[in-house]
Nucleic acid binder design. Structure first.
Length: 113
DNA sequence: TTGCTGACCGACG
DNA sequence: CCGTCGGCCAGCA
């Protein structure tokens, strides 16, 4: 049924698997898919994710620095931050505090395909 | 159909 | 330290 041939759908699967109060990075997802060089494709996947009817918690996906780079695409510059803070994550200067603590590594959590 | 762009990351000068 | 470029895939004009 889910012919996840396109890595976009793979990205959605991973992002949707992110537990509550956790975040991940584009690079981590890209690396999990085996396309570390194509981390920007992951960001593009997020772009269509908000356009799509799928409920993808793209707000839990940030860049390598833990910075909310794509917050502007959530329909508001503060929507992403509000969502993360709502999950118990502290945001300072558009950046996640203790990002390493909240970081959710798909490579570590999803060891099996 | 072709070409450009995109919410990134890492390397190089 | 900072600016620039390459890389990968898919959507859109």
């Amino acid at each position: 049924m889910k012919n996840t041939n396109t890595f976009f759908e793979k990205v959605f699967e991973i992002v949707k698997k992110i537990p509550y109060g956790r975040v991940t990075s584009y690079g981590a997802i890209a690396e999990y898919l085996g396309i570390r060089s194509s981390a920007r494709m992951v960001g593009w996947a997020m772009n269509i994710s908000h356009s799509s009817k799928k409920n993808v918690p793209a707000h839990r996906v940030v860049n390598r620095n833990g910075m909310l780079t794509g917050k502007h695409h959530f329909g508001g510059p503060d929507v992403m931050q509000q969502l993360l803070e709502s999950e118990g994550i502290t945001i300072v200067d558009e950046k996640i505090v203790d990002f390493n603590k909240y970081f959710w590594n798909p490579l570590k959590e999803i060891t099996e395909v």
